[in-house]
């Protein structure tokens, strides 16, 4: 990956430097085949009307690792995350400038088919949002969309996805039941499974545990650990313990600016920026 001068000067100490020199915390293992820039932002800004919610972000998100996004509420975490699979298209006033690339192609390019893009970049939302259908139909929704009709194949995918999401054992005997009957934590894992069933490359998680109790939260965190190495994962969280537990890299946003971006252990133990330090030590919410 070629580095531009502009890149180096940017405020965020992007892992542009880290690409070559991945810091591996003792309990973490490097993932094979990972570490290439999967999503790249260059001077990428996001606006709601005239309001610049995310300001000139320069960063590279590395494949197969878990990247956490932290920052006070309203700082643009969700906005940035949703920009990656163009979920912001739903908001009429929202538009972008600069460059955001996925696999070296412009996400906001003229030729981008956002439907195909979203198939590659799955998303799990803050509140579990299963469809009011059976568990099976929920998981099979994506594969069916993309043209799979064979019952056998669908069953296989459903089982595989549920196993990956560590939900299989709990629901294998009631796949025909309405998904709304599951507990909150189960619903959220179902949503992960549903996303996995379309076989995405990137998994975007926007505060996936904020609506869950501690036990369910722990299960989701375990799940993220399981999936690490197979998917590029980005997780927005307002819980710093969670960020430090599950992620390899952490981005700290403040008022739309990517203030600091570094290996998680480093960012939490030895932040370069005063603002980051204040935030993680709880000076402001």
């Amino acid at each position: 990956m070629q580095m531009t001068a502009e890149h180096k000067e940017s405020k965020a100490t992007g892992p542009a430097t880290a690409t070559r020199d991945i810091y591996i915390p003792s309990e973490r293992v490097a993932v094979s085949g990972g570490g290439t820039p999967h999503v790249v932002a260059k001077d990428f800004s996001i606006y709601y009307g005239d309001f610049e919610a995310v300001k000139k972000v320069n960063a590279e998100i590395l494949s197969k690792y878990v990247t956490a996004i932290i920052g006070p509420s309203g700082c643009g975490k969700s906005t940035f995350l949703r920009a990656i699979n163009r979920m912001n298209d739903l908001i009429p006033s929202c538009h972008t400038s600069g460059i955001l690339q996925f696999d070296g192609e412009d996400i906001y390019g003229k030729l981008t088919d956002e439907v195909l893009l979203r198939k590659k970049i799955g998303m799990v939302f803050q509140k579990p949002n299963p469809f009011p259908k059976s568990i099976f139909d929920n998981i099979a929704y994506g594969p069916r969309l993309h043209g799979m009709t064979d019952k056998k194949q669908l069953e296989e995918i459903v089982e595989r996805s549920l196993r990956k999401a560590a939900l299989w054992d709990e629901v294998s005997d009631r796949l025909e039941r309405n998904a709304l009957g599951l507990s909150g934590g189960q619903q959220q894992r179902l949503c992960v499974a549903r996303t996995l069933a379309v076989e995405p490359e990137i998994l975007l998680l926007d505060e996936p545990t904020s609506a869950l109790d501690p036990k369910a939260t722990a299960k989701i965190e375990d799940l993220i650990q399981e999936l690490r190495g197979s998917y590029t994962i980005m997780i927005v969280t307002h819980n710093m313990q969670q960020a430090s537990r599950v992620s390899d890299y952490t981005m700290f946003f403040y008022e739309g600016v990517l203030v600091e971006y570094a290996q998680t252990a480093q960012l939490f133990t030895n932040p370069k920026d005063r603002m980051t330090e204040d935030y993680i030590t709880g000076r402001f919410s």
């Binding site: 696999d103 192609e105 003229k110 030729l111 981008t112 088919d113 590659k120």
Partner: peptide, 10 residues
Amino acid sequence: SAFVVSPQKR
């Protein structure tokens, strides 16, 4: 790549 289509298709 997988999500970019040809100009005609677009």
